[in-house]
């Protein structure tokens, strides 16, 4: 029972972390580039970097340790592929940030 629960969590968690990461980055951009200019762009980029590292660690966990009984089954594949795609997508979210030194490009 608990194994199954862990499996369900391991399947859903990485991509959920991607979603949180995406929202966080969107929020950071809005905070930094919106008319309110809540933070300078350098702070925004620094925060983005930290948030990304944290998200990558979280989303990558199931890659290292898959909570399944035997490694060959479909659920193990699903969990691993899910985590991998999430990790890639998190990197992609942050990928363009170093390209820009200001909001205007």
């Amino acid at each position: 029972m608990t194994t199954r629960k862990n499996q369900a969590i391991a399947l859903a968690a990485p991509i959920t972390i991607w979603a949180v990461h995406f929202i966080a980055l969107y929020g950071l951009i809005s905070a930094s580039c919106g008319p309110r200019m809540l933070m300078p762009i350098a702070v925004m980029q620094m925060t983005t970097f930290i948030v990304t590292v944290v998200a990558l660690i979280g989303a990558g966990l199931p890659l290292i340790r898959v909570p399944v009984r035997h490694q060959g089954d479909d659920l193990a594949t699903a969990i691993r592929v899910c985590a991998l795609i999430s990790v890639i997508a998190i990197i992609a979210n942050a990928l363009s940030f170093p390209f820009f030194s200001s909001c205007g490009g």
Binding site: L11, A12, I15, T16, W18, A19, F22, L25, Y26, I29, S30, C33, T77, A78, I79, R80, V81, C82, I85, S86, A89, N93, L95, S96, F97, F99, F100, C103, G104, G105
Partner: peptide, 30 residues
Amino acid sequence: AAIVTMGFISFGLWAHHMYATGISPVSLSL
């Protein structure tokens, strides 16, 4: 895995339709 991730990532595309509205380029890249 593909179905689950597609279900999530497809939400991150909405501004896809708003590229020409003058959103900042950083935001567009996200």
